[in-house]
Design a protein around this nucleic acid. Sequence first.
DNA 1: TAACGCTGTGTAATAATATAACATTTATAA
DNA 2: TTATAAATGTTATATTATTACACAGCGTTA
Lengths: 130, 130
Amino acid sequence: MQKQETLTKNQKIILDLIEKSDQPLKAYSILFDVKKKGINAPLQVYRALKKLVKIGKIHKIESRNAFIACKNSKCQIAKATIFSICESCEDVTEIHDHKLSEHLRDFKDNKGMKYNKYNLEFFGLCKKCV
Amino acid sequence: MQKQETLTKNQKIILDLIEKSDQPLKAYSILFDVKKKGINAPLQVYRALKKLVKIGKIHKIESRNAFIACKNSKCQIAKATIFSICESCEDVTEIHDHKLSEHLRDFKDNKGMKYNKYNLEFFGLCKKCV
DNA sequence: TAACGCTGTGTAATAATATAACATTTATAA
DNA sequence: TTATAAATGTTATATTATTACACAGCGTTA
């Protein structure tokens, strides 16, 4: 079987919703919002989220248990994510910084471990909240 | 009131347990283990964990919802953490890499956000699991 | 010393996040 | 067309974390 190119109905519904928000959404808030479209159970949401994360359409903000759309149109990068998170207003922004990404991509520890993925979250106060 | 230097009974019990493990422990597994010491409820565990994280004695592995002791004897660094995580055996190691830490500490985005904390998790396969 | 603020304790209840198990359906590949 | 991988729908349950309340201990300061 080939890699699936087109999303299924549930996946589309959920991706649409996440893409309309510029901030991360939580699974059960997504569930609440898509009930009118016939998605009734948590598992239906979690399954779609899992797939969307896998193909890089969305990312999980681990420290917040929330999901945000990847704005990078070319993004197949489920594998290398950097976010800034305001600890006051909880605003989350994905960071695309070539130099930093390069640095992280090239990082080697002294254990001989080969990395294929990383997730970096910066915390602080955004301009509005300072 | 001054900053508390000494840990309370519950905090000590839980820190001891976490320090004896070289791998991250989950809250409810901690709870199970400390029941014999008179800690009966999840909240007692979560409260101690929160404090221990705050003072830098332990770190939370966000992607795993688990807690690991900080091995760095000087560690007051609840604020700057880097881990490597094996996706096969789930082995977790804290990384101390001066150059990388420096790079992350000095990172500035273009939003004027001031960071006071970051958490970086690398994923891959450890030597044993390759 | 009494009153206050702060931190921690203990307990019960509940909220929030996530997965297991099962039967069925749809899509793709051989 | 048949085998298989991927997705669906549903119910139940597991796991992770917090709210709310009553109270205890300690240091500060009035």
